[in-house]
Computed example of a mutant assay.
Amino acid sequence: MRTFSNETARRILANEIKVEALLQQYPEYQEEVLQELGVIKNNTESNIVHAIIDRYTASAKLATSKIRKSGLNEATVNVFLPKIIKARFAIYLLEQLNVAVSAKSPATSVRFNLWDGTILQKLLFRKGFDRKPVSLGLFKFWWRLISHKEILMPLVNKKGIYCFYSKALIKELSTLLGDKKCLEIAAGDGTLTRFLQQKNIDCHATDDYSWEHYITYPQSVEKADAKAALQKYSPEAVLCSWPVPGNPYEKHVFRTPSVDLYIMLGTSEAAVTGDFAAYTNADKFSMERSERLSALLLPPSDENAVYIFRRKTQG
């Protein structure tokens, strides 16, 4: 049995320790909670979720009462404090893993089962919808265990997320870009630029903010349309991830004299991403679909495509 100091008990009772910190400090209780919540994997009725929340809430209230009445008696604390920690874990997981509870509307009760949500949240996000570079090895291992893969992208599309970037992809892009002055256009929330900056790449994220109804733009993403940004920064390299199909801005990349490298991350389908008419007319650039880089975009798909455009040498 784990033992707790009075100070630890006091801080937990006062809710002074964030759940994220508790998860790190007491991983054994997290595993117990996940096992206890396993019923949700095969039963997503809202009343089941409600019953679980009610049970944990009642358990935490009883444990809190027992501890306080005991005057933080060591034996009482050691028996009942884990019940409070586990209750906080359970409710936190249900909230964070997109499990929405509604006793009146079973159809909206659960968007991901607990197991899918737990795996995807840990693999793909730091918190909320804040993406992180994804370990390709871990992704390949866990992805096969996801029951409802088809839910992921429709869910995150609502937040302006159309792909995830593996660590291996970021490393390869960093090598390609090297010490070039780089610009990302139509950058959305700036995730790709942020990852590249962490690799010491000189990259600047810009977007015209036309998708404010979907995306929360951070201050790190400069409000500027592609043409204006290209004129302002005269970049040597340009990136664009999931450009709108038939968009009006990629053509300006090929018209910018300073650009000698353009990388488009998206799909091979003209109806889904990219201005393929502009690609065809970019006679001063070579065009290559990198199968290696395409395979590093996540989730995996035969349609994933990373196109590399290089300015042709004159001779």
Results as ranks from 00 to 15, higher is better:
54 D>M: 06
39 V>C: 13
303 E>Y: 11
269 E>T: 10
128 G>L: 06
144 R>G: 04
130 D>H: 13
276 F>Q: 01
191 T>P: 05
266 G>T: 07
173 L>N: 07
247 N>R: 06
291 E>Y: 07
219 Q>L: 10
127 K>F: 13
171 K>V: 15
38 G>M: 04
300 P>T: 02
96 Q>D: 05
108 T>K: 15
175 T>G: 09
250 E>T: 14
184 E>N: 03
251 K>H: 07
280 T>D: 14
301 S>G: 04
158 K>M: 12
17 I>T: 03
282 A>Q: 14
142 W>Y: 14
36 E>P: 08
18 K>I: 03
86 K>P: 04
293 L>K: 08
292 R>Q: 13
72 L>D: 15
5 S>H: 09
67 I>G: 09
59 S>K: 08
291 E>I: 11
138 L>F: 03
280 T>K: 15
263 I>D: 00
49 V>E: 04
13 L>P: 06
54 D>N: 05
163 C>L: 12
169 L>G: 11
63 A>Y: 04
235 P>I: 10
223 K>I: 04
307 Y>M: 11
247 N>Q: 05
8 T>M: 10
254 F>A: 11
80 F>C: 09
96 Q>T: 10
244 V>P: 05
254 F>P: 00
49 V>M: 10
107 A>T: 12
194 R>V: 00
131 R>A: 12
188 G>N: 00
262 Y>H: 04
54 D>W: 02
165 Y>P: 11
248 P>K: 08
58 A>M: 03
17 I>K: 00
161 I>L: 14
13 L>G: 06
94 L>W: 07
199 K>A: 15
186 A>H: 01
289 R>V: 14
308 I>M: 03
86 K>N: 09
248 P>Y: 05
3 T>V: 14
140 K>M: 00
162 Y>R: 15
314 Q>W: 13
76 T>G: 14
185 I>G: 01
115 W>Y: 15
190 G>H: 04
228 A>G: 07
264 M>R: 09
310 R>M: 01
48 I>A: 03
140 K>D: 05
125 F>S: 03
213 H>D: 01
106 P>F: 11
8 T>D: 02
137 G>Y: 00
250 E>I: 10
252 H>T: 03
177 L>E: 00
29 Y>G: 02
181 K>M: 02
223 K>E: 14
174 S>T: 15
222 E>P: 00
312 K>W: 07
92 Y>D: 11
247 N>H: 05
195 F>R: 12
267 T>A: 09
94 L>Y: 06
54 D>K: 09
192 L>S: 07
103 A>P: 09
283 D>I: 15
65 S>V: 08
136 L>D: 00
282 A>L: 14
59 S>G: 01
40 I>D: 07
203 C>D: 09
55 R>A: 08
82 P>N: 11
183 L>I: 03
262 Y>V: 02
309 F>E: 07
124 L>P: 13
136 L>H: 01
129 F>M: 15
139 F>I: 02
264 M>V: 04
299 P>F: 03
292 R>F: 12
15 N>F: 12
224 A>W: 00
167 K>T: 14
139 F>A: 10
244 V>I: 13
39 V>G: 13
172 E>N: 12
192 L>I: 06
114 L>K: 14
277 A>G: 13
94 L>C: 07
33 V>N: 02
19 V>I: 12
126 R>V: 15
